[in-house]
Design a protein around this nucleic acid. Structure first.
Lengths: 129, 129
DNA sequence: GATCTATATTCCGTTAAAGGAATGTAGTTG
DNA sequence: CAACTACATTCCTTTAACGGAATATAGATC
C-alpha cells in the first residue's frame, strides 16, 4: 500500500475517529454508531472504505461484524508510523478524547447487566461485547 | 488547524512530494517543476492549496516565488508530528528518494556556472538559487 | 515602455467522495 | 418459516478535487 493511500484513508474525520477507536481494540459496527453518534450508513460506508484499502479487517460474529486493525505483523512501516502519529495527535484533541471516554464507559457497561441499555436493544439481549 | 485538514493536505502524491522537498529547505516554483517533472499549473495549484491551508508560506524574490514550510515555532504539534512521520516514511520510498537525489544535484548545480543549464534559461541568467 | 519571465488564475470537463433514503441480505430467534 | 437484528449495498444528489488550456499579472530587462 502506498503512503498516499494511507493519507487518503486518514483525510476524513469520521474515519480518523474510527481508526482511533480501533487502536484500543476491535469493535462492532453498533458500538461505533453509539460511540460516534453517526448514522449506520455513514459508519458502514467508512468502514467499507477502510476495509477495501486494507486498513481494517472484518469478521462476522453472529449478527455482528467485528472490525479491527490488521495484526501488527501485517502492518507496513508506513502504517505503523502513521497510526502511532495519530494516537499521539489524538491524545490532545477534544473529540478523540471524548470518543475514548465513551469507549471506557462502554467497556464497563459491557458487563452483562448493562448490555441492553448500552446497545439499545431494550430487551436484555446479548450483544457483541 | 484541525488534524483532518493536515491529512487532507497530505492525501495527494504531488503535495506529498512538495512537502517532502520543503523539509530540506525553501524552494521556488521553477525548481519544483524540474524536480517533479510536473506542469507549471499542477505545481502552482498544489502550492496554492497548501498555502491556503497554512502548510506553506510564500514570499516573492524578484520574479520567483519562494515557498517554505512555516517556521518551526509556528508549527502545531500535529503538524510537527506529521512532518516527522512523512520524513521517516519517505526515507524508504523510491519516488521520494529520487526527488531528494535530484535536489542534491540541484544544490550543487546552483553554483553560478551551472545555473543557466539547471534552470533552462539558456542565457546564463541569475536564478532564484 | 515594450518585452520577457515566472507564476497565478480562470474556465472547463472529468472524476471521486460524501451522505441520506430506501432496499437487500446474512444470520438469529421464536 | 416468519419475524427480527445487524449490517451492507444501491440509487441519488451535492460538492470538491484534479488537471489541462488559455489567459492574466507582477516584476525584471532591454
Amino acid at each position: 500500500m502506498k503512503l498516499v493511500q494511507i493519507y487518503q484513508c486518514l483525510c476524513d474525520e469520521t474515519r480518523l475517529r474510527l481508526l482511533h477507536l480501533l487502536l484500543q481494540g476491535p469493535l462492532c459496527v453498533c458500538h461505533f454508531q453509539s460511540l460516534l453518534g453517526e448514522s449506520q450508513v455513514k459508519i458502514s460506508k467508512h468502514l467499507g472504505y477502510l476495509k477495501t484499502r486494507g486498513l481494517v479487517t472484518a469478521s462476522r460474529s453472529g449478527n455482528w461484524m467485528i472490525y479491527a486493525l490488521p495484526p501488527e505483523k501485517a502492518r507496513s512501516a508506513e502504517l505503523k508510523a502513521n497510526l502511532a502519529c495519530l494516537q499521539d495527535c489524538a491524545a490532545e484533541n477534544a473529540v478523540f478524547k471524548r470518543d475514548l471516554a465513551r469507549l471506557k464507559k462502554l467497556d464497563l457497561a459491557c458487563a452483562p447487566a448493562q448490555v441492553a441499555e448500552v446497545c439499545g436493544t431494550g430487551k436484555g439481549k446479548a450483544c457483541c461485547c
